[in-house]
């Protein structure tokens, strides 16, 4: 009897949060699917149609023509950003070992975390643009004479600006995760390993990496999901073509031509689907690695 009451109490405490999140996410997905299938009350149509998806996959229609290049571009930007961020965080973990990170670095990392992406993108533009701070530094050093001579680092066709943005924003995030893991459990294992005769590289390989990898993998999944679906950064630091899927999706959705809404919504769902697939593949790969290691 008391057990049943306890279980009831647990679910009562969870219910409000679960209901809000579950209902809102569920409703948005349901409405999203309905919209993408052409069930749009605004247009008055009530015929189920997969036209939006077909156009995208076939590469036809105003947005469809850009679909495959946009998918490729999005994957390139997000995978490169995630990989570089994770690599950077790992290097920090290896370099720090069991020495604690000092307060200044922690403060800078947290400060970086506090900056909204929108502001960071603006700031990066002011730093890396062809007349930005870096270009002025190059001019002061006599490396360039005119802004046009400075390499195009933001609003470039290869997505370098977007990648630079995500790396400079997400690498600190992953570093904080790694530092938190090392702080809570790193030192004793490392000491034991050293005592057993492991040298520096062996300790990194067999102690530090396995310790931080699970948290780092989870964090990297978040980074990928975020960078693959975010709109503001590629909208501010990208070019008209190629665009990322997110930019294509939002611009289709807010297009005055209401028929484009279905396409935008379909793109939104495809972004979610691709995210799931990539994160799932990443997890499967990580598990296989763990088993291979054991």
């Amino acid at each position: 009897m008391t057990r049943a009451r306890q279980t009831f109490g647990i679910w009562l405490a969870l219910a409000p949060a679960l209901a809000v999140v579950g209902l809102l996410v569920g409703a948005s997905l349901a409405y999203g699917v309905a919209q993408s299938l052409g069930l749009l009350a605004i247009l008055g149509t009530s015929q189920v149609s997969v036209a939006a998806y077909r156009d995208l996959l076939d590469g036809t229609g105003p947005a469809g023509r850009e679909f495959w290049p946009a998918l490729g571009f999005s994957l390139w930007v997000s995978l490169a950003s995630t990989g570089l961020s994770a690599l950077g965080a790992l290097l920090v973990a290896a370099a720090l070992g069991r020495r604690p990170a000092d307060g200044t670095i922690l403060l800078m990392l947290n400060l970086n975390l506090a900056f909204p992406h929108l502001v960071w993108a603006v700031a990066l533009g002011l730093l890396l643009g062809q007349s930005g701070l870096l270009a002025r530094l190059a001019a002061a050093l006599g490396l360039i004479d005119a802004p046009a001579e400075f390499p195009v680092l933001v609003r470039d066709r290869d997505g370098l600006g977007i990648i630079l943005h995500y790396v400079s924003k997400e690498m600190p995030f992953l570093m904080l995760i790694v530092l938190a893991v090392l702080r809570t459990q790193g030192t004793e294992y490392d000491l034991v390993a050293e005592n057993l005769g492991a040298d520096g590289w062996q300790r990194v390989r067999h102690i530090t990496l396995p310790l931080v990898l699970p948290a780092l993998a989870a964090g990297s999944a978040l980074v990928f999901a975020f960078s693959f679906g975010a709109y503001e950064v590629p909208a501010l630091l990208g070019v008209r073509y190629p665009r990322t899927l997110a930019v294509l999706a939002l611009e289709s959705f807010v297009n005055p031509d209401l028929r484009q809404r279905a396409t935008g919504m379909a793109l939104g769902l495809i972004i979610g689907l691709v995210t799931l697939v990539v994160v799932g593949l990443g997890r499967a790969w990580q598990r296989a690695e763990v088993r291979h290691d054991a």
Partner: peptide, 24 residues
Amino acid sequence: LVLLVLFLPNIVPPLAIGMGLNVL
């Protein structure tokens, strides 16, 4: 399972959430 549901908004892009809830 609860943690999974709560984790969902991190995977579903805000774009899709916003576009879906727009109509609602």
